Amino acid sequence: MRPEISASLDDLETTLGTIEKVMDPDEMSDRVRELETQAADPSLWDDPEHAQKVTSELSNVQGSLKKLRGLRQRLDDMPVLFELAEEEGEGDELALAELKDLREEIEALEVKTMLSGEYDAREAVLTIRSGAGGVDASDWAEMLMRMYIRWAEKKGHKVEIYDTSYAEEAGIKSATLVIHGEYTYGTLSVEQGAHRLVRISPFDNQGRRQTSFAEVEVLPVVEQTDHIDIPDTDIRVDVFRSSGPGGQSVNTTDSAVRITHLPTNIVVTCQNEKSQLQNRASAMRVLQAKLLEKKRAEERAELDALGAGGNASWGNQMRSYVLHPYQMVKDLRTNYEVNDPQKVLDGDLDGFLEAGIRWRMSEQQKKD
């Protein structure tokens, strides 16, 4: 076996060994048996909500354990693959392709082990708002919404669009969507900040270059255990008819709901459901997520004031997408970049997400 291949396998062995220490497959096996016992109890479904949590966790732990064991088996088999290739004298292209795929999967799992924050395993609430740049910014906000939806679809995650506020000429003023799936909050939380687009404006009849901005906010979906109490006296609820592009009404009943949290003046709108009750419930979930994040931000500020941590802000502009005069997408925190913006805008975000998660881990270690 060539020295560089042996070195690569040794490197993967070290990485996978570290992952196994963190994930602890023996402990995962014990948890699977415990959850299987609970799932087999006929009385479990007396409490459907608890039953759903048990079966969901069982499925997730079983899947993670199967993935970890599969990677271990594939890595153990790699030396045999290269030996067979040498013996048969047919070249090692297939073995090298398997090594490349295995490295990518192990590195992706390594990144997942870095998602150990209190809320990282939860689903994500994304809010996208157009910023400076006029109609180009509204169009840019809609392009970003499409990018995240495409990313979620590629990962097999369900997306619910809670609210879309359309701009008059093109694009959107804002949109709120929930991306369902384990660890979607932890994964997408590194997307928070201002995204900058540079291109020849399709809305400028003189064909001039335009810079526009959109803001992305990422919050964890709130669970019942979070204890975010919102008294009825603290909110104002307004109902209206759902609207589509150009302000046109999309139904004939006042089913859309706008909730204003009076103490903070936070406003949440939901109009994706036909039922006013369903829209109110969805809007309350988003409001709770925003209040939970506000509470967390206040706690971080208190710790920072006591010298317990650095500045938690990610800064304003975090990524640039340049379509003219050259083609490039670059993350300004990690310096990760690609020269195919269209691929990124079609949802190919994994490289940026992994680089962002590694960068965040590195920054946290510096503070510690």
Rank of each mutant, 00 (worst) to 15 (best):
M1P: 14
M1H: 10
P3T: 04
S8F: 02
L12F: 00
M23H: 08
D24N: 13
P25Q: 10
S29V: 04
R33Q: 05
R33M: 15
Q38H: 09
A40C: 03
D47Y: 15
P48I: 13
L58R: 06
V61A: 04
V80A: 12
L81E: 15
F82M: 12
D92E: 12
A95M: 13
L102Q: 14
R103N: 08
E105Y: 10
E105R: 14
A108E: 14
L109R: 09
L109Y: 11
E110I: 03
V111D: 10
V125N: 05
T127S: 15
R129W: 13
G131P: 07
M143F: 06
M143A: 10
K154Q: 10
E160D: 12
I161D: 00
D163G: 03
A167N: 06
A170E: 12
G171S: 10
A175F: 09
L177R: 08
L177H: 08
H180K: 11
A194E: 02
R196N: 05
R199N: 06
I200T: 09
G207P: 03
Q210T: 10
F213G: 08
F213E: 02
A214L: 09
D226N: 14
I228T: 11
I235V: 13
D238T: 04
V239L: 00
S249F: 08
I259G: 02
T260L: 11
T264F: 00
N265R: 14
I266E: 08
I266D: 09
E273T: 07
K274A: 05
S275P: 01
A283R: 12
M284D: 11
R285V: 12
A289K: 06
A289I: 03
L292S: 02
K295A: 03
R296K: 12
R300M: 15
D304E: 13
A308P: 06
G310H: 09
G315P: 03
R319H: 13
S320D: 06
L323P: 01
Y326Q: 14
M328R: 15
V329T: 05
K330D: 02
D331N: 00
N335F: 04
N339W: 07
N339K: 11
K343M: 12
K343H: 10
G347P: 05
G351E: 05
G351V: 14
R360T: 01
S362L: 15
Q364F: 01
K367L: 02
